[in-house]
């Protein structure tokens, strides 16, 4: 798997798209740092962008990369290696290259700005960590979708729908549910539902740092326990990791049973 990973990673890192992706983050961050004199405001703006863009780009690139490399995969499949090694290698290669673009695009401007001497360094690293986790999760989901759908158009469509679902629709439905059932105790539902959406999860992970003052204003005991202690951080991180493990396992399951 590591060999495939290595070559996928090098292949992708040299692609124009990785460069454009990194350049976008770079310019965006530079712009924000330049326009805004408040570092925490920059972190919040970047959070919004990362929560939307990382999943979107990972989903799109994941599907695209799968379909583009399908013929080459046939060659690889005929080599004496495991199937899962091929797809895991490609998946991790893609996710790692996206993550590297993110880290460079965000990290260089912040390093130039002097984040390492700043108190914001912790928030910044949480931000980067979330971006990386989201890149992994959504390229995994994209690979899974593409593996399940040989038709490109269908695969792309489903991937976009998946992104849209996690980025917007899910929260809309959750809000509707919360408002509709507001006479009932809902805090378990609210927290539980967030665990099933990786975007919500990483958002909450960032909120725990940025908006803890507001979060502490909520009265529920479960909430207090979740937000106020390390439990929230720990649980969010572990569920996010689960979001990498499960699609990864699903990729293997589908790949092992698929005809190419």
């Amino acid at each position: 798997m590591f060999k495939i990973f290595k070559y996928s990673f090098f292949d992708l890192m040299r692609s124009r798209w990785s460069l454009i992706y990194a350049a976008f983050y770079f310019l965006f961050t530079i712009g924000l740092l330049w326009l805004s004199n408040d570092l925490s405001k920059v972190v919040i703006s970047l959070m919004n962008v990362i929560l939307i863009l990382c999943p979107l780009i990972a989903t799109m690139f994941g599907v695209m990369y799968y379909y583009n490399s399908r013929e080459f995969v046939e060659l690889l499949l005929a080599q004496p290696i495991r199937r899962s090694a091929i797809f895991w290698g490609q998946y991790f290669g893609l996710a790692a290259s996206l993550s590297l673009s993110l880290v460079i695009g965000l990290g260089v401007p912040f390093a130039m700005y002097g984040i390492f001497q700043s108190a914001e360094i912790f928030n910044f690293s949480i931000l980067i960590l979330n971006g990386i986790l989201l890149s992994f999760i959504f390229s995994g989901v994209a690979f899974f979708i593409a593996l399940r759908n040989e038709q490109k158009i269908r695969g792309f469509g489903l991937a976009i729908v998946a992104w849209l679902f996690f980025a917007v629709i899910y929260d809309g439905l959750l809000l509707l549910a919360l408002m509709y059932f507001r006479d009932y105790p809902l805090e378990r539902l609210a927290i539980g539902a967030s665990l099933f959406n990786p975007i919500d999860l990483s958002r909450i992970l960032i909120l725990l740092k940025l908006d803890i003052s507001a979060l502490m204003g909520y009265t529920g005991a479960v909430f207090q326990k979740f937000m106020g202690t390390g439990i929230g951080m720990f649980l969010s991180l572990s569920v996010l990791l689960l979001w990498i493990v499960v699609p990864g396992w699903a990729i293997r399951w589908v790949a092992d049973r698929k005809d190419f």
Binding site: I44, M179, R203
Partner: peptide
């Protein structure tokens, strides 16, 4: 919204909001 349904705090800073 937060005033009406305090639990919706989990949706803070989401794209939908």
């Amino acid at each position: 919204i937060l005033d009406q349904t305090p639990e919706s705090i989990v949706l803070l800073r989401s794209l939908f909001i």
